[in-house]
Design a protein around this nucleic acid. Sequence first.
DNA 1: TGATAATGTGAAAGCGCTTACAGGTACAAA
DNA 2: TTTGTACCTGTAAGCGCTTTCACATTATCA
Lengths: 367, 367
Amino acid sequence: MRITAKQVAEKAGVSLATVSRVINRSGYVEAGLRSRIETVMAELGYVPNRNAKNLATGHTRTVGLIITSLRSPYFVRLTEGIQDVLEGKGYHLLLCNTKFNAKIELDDLQLLREGMLDGVITATGSLTHDVMLDLIRQNYPMVFINRIFEEIGEEPNRAGYVMGDLVYAGKVAVNHLLQQGHRNIAVLYGAANSTANKLRLAGMQQAFAEHGIDSRPELLHCVQHPPGLFGVDSDTESNWAYSETMEILQSHPEVTAILVFYHPMLSGVMQALRDAGRPVPESVSLIGFDEFPLAPFLDPPLTVMAQPVYEIGRAAARALVQKIEDPTLSVSKTIILKPKLIIRQSVAPASPKYRAQGDRLLNSGHK
Amino acid sequence: MRITAKQVAEKAGVSLATVSRVINRSGYVEAGLRSRIETVMAELGYVPNRNAKNLATGHTRTVGLIITSLRSPYFVRLTEGIQDVLEGKGYHLLLCNTKFNAKIELDDLQLLREGMLDGVITATGSLTHDVMLDLIRQNYPMVFINRIFEEIGEEPNRAGYVMGDLVYAGKVAVNHLLQQGHRNIAVLYGAANSTANKLRLAGMQQAFAEHGIDSRPELLHCVQHPPGLFGVDSDTESNWAYSETMEILQSHPEVTAILVFYHPMLSGVMQALRDAGRPVPESVSLIGFDEFPLAPFLDPPLTVMAQPVYEIGRAAARALVQKIEDPTLSVSKTIILKPKLIIRQSVAPASPKYRAQGDRLLNSGHK
DNA sequence: TGATAATGTGAAAGCGCTTACAGGTACAAA
DNA sequence: TTTGTACCTGTAAGCGCTTTCACATTATCA
């Protein structure tokens, strides 16, 4: 059977409390006694029971991270940032991969309620919005990435927010395209209705506005996948992106540029472009989101909107730990970090033909 | 304060035991009472305390996964396989990213001893070999991926093993190269001394043997990174690979093919090749390990040894859960799954010049 | 009809820790 | 000497569940 602190106490001829003190280096214990107890612990091979400790102290020093998939370098790098700070603070990470499945997300959120998690970092969209709201209002320590809750006003609570500057990201990406003469741009979204998508869309529209162009739907073909679409399968996102891209290419041959917001969709988009005989960037320009090591080695080297996602992860983890350890409620400032466009070779000037077509559309006015 | 089962019991006018029975659907409880208690729980917003439950039952339904980095599609896909089966069985995943750092690995292993983890799946190399041995002998439920322990003979315990057929992988990869006339092959390893590396090396040597070639060190330049080399930094593996590749290219200009066992190194290798003016595959052929969605879109499309890693993950998780839930000790059979070479365009026939050079080396004999 | 089994409920003893609280000693300051 | 304070250790009451055991009550079957 397993050795308990009580047995250590008996063998060392001290009380349980003293053993606890040496384990936790808390309170006073005389040096001689301490080392005697440590010897006994070593002899007995004593290992403290973490569950008992968790119960007694009311916390576990583990936090949950909710993401949609590790297939995106965005989430990978985010996770790394988070783990690197957690590790330094003695926290552990419980990973929840929702695959856009609300049930899975709910399941992990429940762990927070059940006291098994001290806090949670959420990097996903809007699947379980109401539950999140509820948790925030109940003052659970939470940090949200690229997401805000308008419903929560100035009520103090223990939620924090860290974001990339998504408006800026959308704007800069579209600007780059606009400058190269692109007018008909298709956008492949991640989950619908997410804060992130709204902000990016706003940024994209700003870019159009700044170019004196009215960004009617014809000029910006946004495709969002329905919630809960993706399964366990290795490449459902990619497959979805493939068929959506094919669809766009056929129904909107005037599209000369594609923005891919969710990295796992990239391979599907590229495959579709290849199958449709539309070379990148000669025929269609492409911008990906999130930098990854092999981006310079794609054919063509991929122009990418790089979010400072490692830093976002670190900021999120720091904020969460701080919120966990400080019982004070407050209304928290949102931390915002700027992304950067890394220009490579997947964007080229729009072919004059399509350029003209876009401008024609543009000049035809609308009611 | 938080609602406890005791309060539910009082309000419902029943005993604590009965409340516990309805929570766990265990034992007998009359239908009417059950629904009354459920109503009370709902009214009170009762959520059971998981730490108390963990303490009382002695298990947590969470398992640990130890990997080196999420930057490799190998570990990503592995993690997905594991999570997909765990999720179905009601287990949660605690993720440990060692970054080849023994301290971090030890830390998570400790959670197993402390009872916070019901079991652990280890997919890393040899950093904490002795501790692993210890844990196995103490009959903790563990599953090892691509790793075996010769030290454990026929002693029954609760460890399991699942492996890709690494010998086969090494053999097939080298065979492919040999057939194209390559004779001087460089290999970039992951962590030194791992079971996986030994097996692959064995396979590679088999391939040479089958071609009637003696695979002296001159013909197979293996480079292993020292343990603990890699840090937090985004691309230490890549940087290491870059300088090693540069080094090889200079000191062994006769090398015409490179095998990259650890995916995060790939970008470094490709950058070095590019900087050294050695085009792939015209000058140097390249084989990567582990398939990933963008492999067909690299320049050139990458030939890759694809391990059935999702299946490996599933098998590992199934094995672990089974070992957790079945207290019987046994000596376990190793599950072996075959990889597959996916041929694309990063391997071309060796240039005759180097081919000749390789053969000359070969024919010069050795003492 | 009585014996046996199945069903339903409660009391209470843990699970293995932490943490007041109380009490004791030693030593410096007053 | 007294008092105050730092230092040291133990007692015991939890933390919030699960689970055994005992005891009722009801159904089942010769």
